[in-house]
Write a protein that binds this DNA or RNA. Structure first.
Lengths: 214, 214
DNA sequence: CAAAGTTAATCAATCGATTGATTAATTAAC
DNA sequence: GTTAATTAATCAATCGATTGATTAACTTTG
């Protein structure tokens, strides 16, 4: 029973921290607020994770590793490259939509210089592996004559950048789409399919060789 | 003479603050560090701008207004929509490449919740106007039959998101492009033309109606 | 022109508040 | 009864901001 509760409480803190870090940023989220939002004494934070940075590290690590494996599974299957890209994009959009705060955190982690932490390196290395995976699929598609000879790095940036922009600037997106707020339901039921459709359409027209060019 | 020196010093602090805010984030940049980097007493910060938030506000405002006008000039000219989009993208990439820190700041401002400031609203309103400008050009192009019937909002997100991603995650980009560092020279001479070429190619294939569809 | 008066610019020192982290004491669990 | 979990209290350090004093530069006055 104690074991169960301990895990639940740690897990709960991780969930709360993911949201608060995502909303306020690392420096903006104080340990007191984190503990308060989680409904526990702030000493528990250090008891569980050693430090504030350790908490962020735990928040980041528990998600990154699992996602990596899913990406690799798709990339190593035997199917047309277009199908691979399609599935990767689908998985990525799905992951981002269901854990928006997490993706805010990791994007901020690679765009802001925080001094004296190892979290950034971990994030950077993992993102790099993910990006290179897409990179290789694109290169393979071009080599096989399935894709046009596009700028691979820019195409990758186009995919990740578009998704990232929509998720990380929800307030701007809400304004544009004339919604007073964008809750999780709208994100899942409206934004996600539209984003997916756009990416597929955009990539299809950009990557695939048109009839006129044949 | 005194007037000249005063302006230069304020301007100098604005420049330094833009870099430091961009590198470390608002909460990550302390007033002491800001003053130290600018080589002046930290009381000067409050003397000039009232508060730390006032400094950020000044940093943001001096750039946003001017860019807005340039965007509008292009949009209101009499030319094909494709040419408008082309010029807007060109201007935007150029602006971002020459003031990378500033764009880090405003993107963070709309993605992080900072309590009790008015800077966010200012940024949000200005970005909204810029986005709607592109929005209207795209809508016009579709109405005139110049463009395919794409998802306008997503297309806009694709443009701004791609540029934003490349600039705000330079460390990841460096890793992908196998550069140990990405200095301003590389950014200007390599990244910028590649990004521009990609966006034009991507938008062309996505927006313009292909021969096969006619 | 020179002395007195006035303003803006700059500084070191310090304010109260908050930060992340730690302690020692207490409670709960098995 | 021993270990693990939890708490309130407290730590030094740093935060943004303000103070009163000092300097420099310009204006006014005689």
């Amino acid at each position: 029973m104690a074991e169960k509760e301990k895990i639940d409480k740690k897990e709960h803190l991780l969930n709360v921290a993911e949201r608060v870090f995502g909303e306020m940023g690392y420096d903006g989220a104080s340990t007191r607020l984190l503990a308060q939002e989680a409904g526990m004494n702030m000493a528990m934070l250090n008891y569980y994770f050693g430090s504030k940075d350790g908490l962020l590290k735990a928040v980041v690590e528990r998600r990154m590793s699992s996602t990596r494996k899913e990406f690799e599974e798709i990339a190593h299957q035997d199917m047309p490259c277009w199908e691979k890209i399609n599935q990767i994009v689908q998985l990525y959009v799905s992951r981002v939509a269901t854990s928006k705060y997490f993706h805010k955190i990791i994007f901020r982690e690679i765009s802001v210089i925080r001094s004296g932490t190892e979290v950034t390196d971990f994030v950077l290395e993992n993102l790099y592996q993910n990006v290179m995976l897409v990179h290789r699929v694109l290169a393979e598609g071009i080599r096989k004559g399935e894709f046009r000879e596009v700028d691979i790095e820019m195409t990758v940036a186009g995919i990740f950048g578009t998704v990232n922009y929509l998720i990380n600037s929800r307030r701007l997106a809400s304004k544009i789409l004339k919604m007073d707020l964008m809750d999780d339901h709208v994100l899942q039921e409206e934004m996600k399919p539209r984003l997916l459709a756009y990416l597929q359409d955009s990539l299809k027209t950009h990557l695939l060789i048109h009839e006129t060019e044949k």
